[in-house]
Design a protein around this nucleic acid. Structure first.
Lengths: 225, 225
DNA sequence: CGGAATCCTCTTCGATACTG
DNA sequence: CAGTATCGAAGAGGATTCCG
């Protein structure tokens, strides 16, 4: 009975959030479910190192808090998926991804990696980009796509319905563009990235990838009186 | 020697972020420092329940990662403060505060509370508001203020230099406005909030407080192929 | 008094084994 | 496939002590 959970006991929205999603592994589970619904075993393989009892415990808590739901829509294939409330965690998570991009540069390249995580990296990168043409990405055998969807950009696994631009790249080039300010066209010149599409559209994509949503640090810290 | 820290070992900006700021108490320490520089003892009293060794450990790690710095500018009063990189955590943190606002409504009102935390709540609420007049808030003996600062809103402790509007309220009214959609003018009618200022300006403040930055959930989840 | 280190207990995590 | 059960190892919580 893990009914006596630790709590910060603070009347503060951040502390109350962390009481629910601050435990180890929890936000990484949410990250996986932001990519798409997943079965229990999918989550286990997508989160190397998580103990099965922890996964079960976290999922139970997330269900109880209305963040995750277990759907049995398709027979015999129960899947965990985010509720609409849980999906709203995408905004803070993508903000954290943007903040943490700096660590990618100096990270050990031997760390575990799954191509699906690029979906998250691309969402973080492209959020706020305006007028993005439909793009298909092909990275290490996996296909994903980005397209404009009512005022925002949607990035999902799978091929684009009607791509204007197709980008074929390796992991490091995508991460380089997403995190360290490498421009798409420079990456092409280096030879690890191929881009197919109308040149004008390609330039628009290059611009969108540079955009890099400069919404951060709008506040100035000043010494309080 | 806590030199063998747990790591997710994932090449993903979220996991790398959580390796640094995902431990218990860490983000709450950052929250305190977002309000202003703090001495070690200030942090201890502002974070009821934190063990002193944990606070020391977390601060050391935050220093090592370039998020926090110890300044000895004023003699005899060493203070911890956020670096510019650390200040960039404000964006994800305020996003989490906005997400977690729903829990405030059903939270136990007996939870620990410090008036300074309203600075964070107000920053989360007012982010993105346009053309906000200078406002002074007086809550439970503490004074804070909000004002427009190059394209953003800045909320700090202390009185406003030249307030256009002065709002006097109790904690619950501020949290009600910040989290549960209570409008300022309704709160005034209920009698727990006094507002002093030009009526037209007050209406502008009311509008800004309703604004409630609807940047979230721009993405739609769709089943991947 | 500010800023910790130490010690001890309790909880949570992690790894493996096991079950409906 | 989808979890429980178990158990040793870290990590957290609280009190006390130490140092400049």
């Amino acid at each position: 009975m893990a009914e006596t959970r630790r709590s910060y006991d603070q009347y503060c929205a951040l502390a109350l959030s962390l009481d629910r999603i601050g435990d180890r592994w929890t936000l990484l589970i949410v990250r996986e479910l932001l990519i798409g619904p997943r079965r229990y075993t999918d989550l286990r393989t997508a989160l190397p190192g998580i103990a099965t009892n922890l996964l079960a415990d976290r999922l139970r808590r997330l269900e109880r808090d209305g963040i995750v739901a277990l759907t049995t829509s398709e027979p015999g294939a129960a899947r965990y998926e985010l509720t609409s409330f849980g999906r709203e965690l995408e905004t803070p998570i993508l903000a954290l991804v943007r903040w943490g991009g700096r660590w990618l540069v100096e990270a050990d390249p031997a760390l575990q990696f799954r191509v699906e995580w690029l979906v998250i990296a691309l969402r973080a990168l492209l959020a706020g980009a305006a007028d993005l043409p439909s793009i298909e990405f092909r990275v290490d055998g996996e296909t994903m796509h980005a397209r404009s969807v009512n005022e925002g950009i949607d990035v999902q696994l799978g091929p684009a319905p009607a791509p204007s631009v197709v980008i074929t790249a390796d992991r490091d080039s995508v991460m380089g563009v997403a995190s360290s300010g490498l421009s798409l066209l420079d990456a092409v010149k280096r030879g690890h990235v191929q881009v197919v599409g109308d040149p004008k559209t390609v330039r628009a994509v290059d611009r969108a990838l540079r955009h890099r949503t400069e919404l951060r640090s709008r506040y100035r810290s000043a010494d309080p009186g």
